[in-house]
Design a protein around this nucleic acid. Structure first.
Lengths: 214, 214
DNA sequence: CTTCATTGGGGAGTGCCACTATCCAAGCAT
DNA sequence: ATGCTTGGATAGTGGCACTCCCCAATGAAG
């Protein structure tokens, strides 16, 4: 198919597709001649994935490129491809290491992982960007005066562990080996917004149940 | 305290504080004379909340203003203040109502709420921006060919309901009546990034447990 | 064969956002 | 009196995600 058809079937303007091609998010089509390039179903699928990441997942264009690079990196074993792709997703900015709240939050969150007995806690605390997000958010809460400590978070963490188990089951039940990395990315990029939406709906529901509309 | 001290104690530059004052995010200090204004602890606290929303929660400045407006709106009963504040938080853009995937996803998600028996399902499906996010993410998944249906989401929703119960318990146990709206905002703005981080850590953990590093 | 709209490519421009830099006059400190 | 600091206002910056416009080559219509 040609650019115009790719645009029509994806709902993305040709100008935007050209932009993605220039940025290297989308592989160029097969060049038929100087003024014609041919795109296939794989391009369409990839383009939809890109749009999902950008529009639903709010992932910046440069990050999408990085994540897709990991997804496509055949030189890594699968588990590492997944990890690399997820770690490339946007996180909170690097905190000020000298800040006392950040230091305290870091110690508390290391304790949390230990309490949970999560096996690769060592690797997590040193390098995982998710761990950093956790520390930054905890520090912000404490700066506001809430005694947000590991005990508060343990039940949350156990629930999220159950969520992760659901993720893995979905991945195993529906997907061919070749697509697993893509599904892992979808698992964070699309499922997280859904979790967030469900969380807010559940809050409304629970709040109404407890307090009505007073 | 003066602007310089407010800046020092919050870690926010004077230029940025002036910007927030101009944008109406922060109430002006008590004007002592033409060149001096006096700020109190409440300003500091509010400034930290603003920073947490912007930096940790990635909430746009204009939205922060809107959310704080609802938090401070004494004319509304509490439950509505909370709802209004949370609903003002950024969500996914409005989907194309004619899109077949969007229509299908909407029907599926209405079914989900019915299955869950969430009591105010009627109000949710018609107006809640969270419901819209859910529809948009589901449509994106289906467009990519995954048979993402209400049954898949039910266990996720039940887990998020448990999370919401934890939120409410935290809110009730720690906080004076006057601060409840602020805590509700924090509950989505700061707790959601933490949930997200815990989700990703749990995925790493669960993935490692199941597959090792192959 | 000529005309003419269309195509892919590429550079430059746009609009928005979150600051940030500069300027200014009034005050206060020495 | 001098010079630094303050709050207030205006304009500018840099990044991002497009979006516009122009071009030469092409393919389709008459």
């Amino acid at each position: 198919m040609r650019l115009a058809e790719l645009s029509e079937r994806s709902g993305v303007s040709t100008a935007t597709i050209k932009y993605y091609l220039r940025e290297g998010l989308l592989a160029p089509g097969r060049q038929v001649n100087t003024t014609t390039a041919d795109y296939d179903e794989e391009h369409l699928r990839r383009l939809r994935l890109i749009r999902a990441m950008i529009q639903v997942g709010r992932v910046p264009v440069a990050t999408v490129k990085e994540v897709l690079g990991h997804v496509d990196d055949d030189s890594l074993p699968r588990a590492m491809r997944l990890g690399a792709a997820v770690w490339a997703l946007p996180q909170v900015p690097e905190p000020d290491a000298d800040d006392e709240f950040v230091q305290g939050a870091r110690v508390a969150m290391e304790g949390l992982l230990k309490t949970l007995g999560w096996s690769n806690a060592q690797a997590m605390t040193t390098i995982s960007p998710s761990f950093r997000s956790l520390v930054v958010a905890t520090a912000a809460l404490r700066r506001l005066g809430y005694d947000w400590n590991p005990e508060t978070l343990v039940p949350y963490a156990r629930l999220m562990r159950q969520v992760a188990e659901l993720d893995m089951e979905f991945m195993e039940s529906h997907v061919s080996e070749a697509e697993k990395a893509e599904v892992a990315v979808l698992g964070v990029v699309l499922v997280e917004p859904m979790l967030q939406a469900l969380h807010r709906l559940a809050q409304e529901e629970e709040s109404t149940r407890r307090y009505g509309f007073e």
